[in-house]
Nucleic acid binder design. Structure first.
Lengths: 128, 128
DNA sequence: AATTACACTTGTGACTTGCAAGTGACTATT
DNA sequence: AATAGTCACTTGCAAGTCACAAGTGTAATT
């Protein structure tokens, strides 16, 4: 999941977030979660090594920004970048789709579904 | 990638199509491709075993319908079901996002981006 | 000094993927 | 009639990714 398979925008998106976990973490961030332990607490039960790996990957790709929220002991928090936040419409469409076609899925809160994002000017993903 | 991790519609969607290939195959189907050899010919270069596996998985999950288009020798074609076609908005949003944020991605044809789908009545995914 | 909290890292085995080659049913060509 | 070709796969194996459990480093708390 590192370099790009083709110029197709769909495959490019999947090369960045086309796995079982990245968009779950982004979803949590959109809902205000910021810390490692908060992501671990989600019902999908991501494991610690995969979480650390995905956070690092998304940071390298410019989807997530890592900041130190406390020195001594050093503690970090993770927030979605503009590029990361701009994936909200993808998450919203997935939600609408699953609510229609996958029985038993819950309906997300209005504040999640109604939120609108605005694209900023494009920037380079800052690949590794 | 088989049973559901939580009731979250995003995680449910990812449980069905959250891998590197399923949505690429669906994209090809949305663009009219129907046959095994056509999917293999795409620039992303899926391998034969993964293609066979994903087609079977998506068929079992009700995203794809397999029909025999010729007896003697038996030949099959794969078309997206309504459930599969309903993922178009997800693909469109991914395209918009990548065109904005991932340099070098091509812009999909208008007929792909402008197409609109209508949700039918919900139906059960037809688990395996 | 021992315990707790947070944010990870490491080790191991199981599962999934990529790559290459082979198979079976037929059709077309020589 | 034998050979070659097409299509839609299947099989085998090595390499990569994942889940699960345990351990590490820094510092505050008791």
């Amino acid at each position: 999941m590192e370099n790009t398979r083709s110029g197709c925008p769909i495959s490019a998106t999947l090369d960045l977030v086309g796995d079982r976990w990245s968009l779950i973490i982004l979803r949590d961030m959109m809902n205000g979660k910021r810390r490692y332990s908060e992501f671990l607490a989600s019902p999908e039960q991501i494991t610690t090594n995969v979480l650390a790996d995905r956070l690092g990957q998304m940071e390298r790709h410019g989807l997530v920004e890592k900041t130190t929220y406390q020195m001594r002991p050093k503690r970090y928090e993770y927030a979605p970048s503009e590029m990361g936040r701009a994936l909200l419409p993808v998450l919203q469409q997935m939600s609408l789709w699953a609510n229609h076609y996958v029985p038993g899925t819950w309906v997300p809160p209005e504040q999640f579904m109604k939120r609108r994002i605005a694209f900023g000017r494009p920037h380079d993903g800052g690949g590794e």
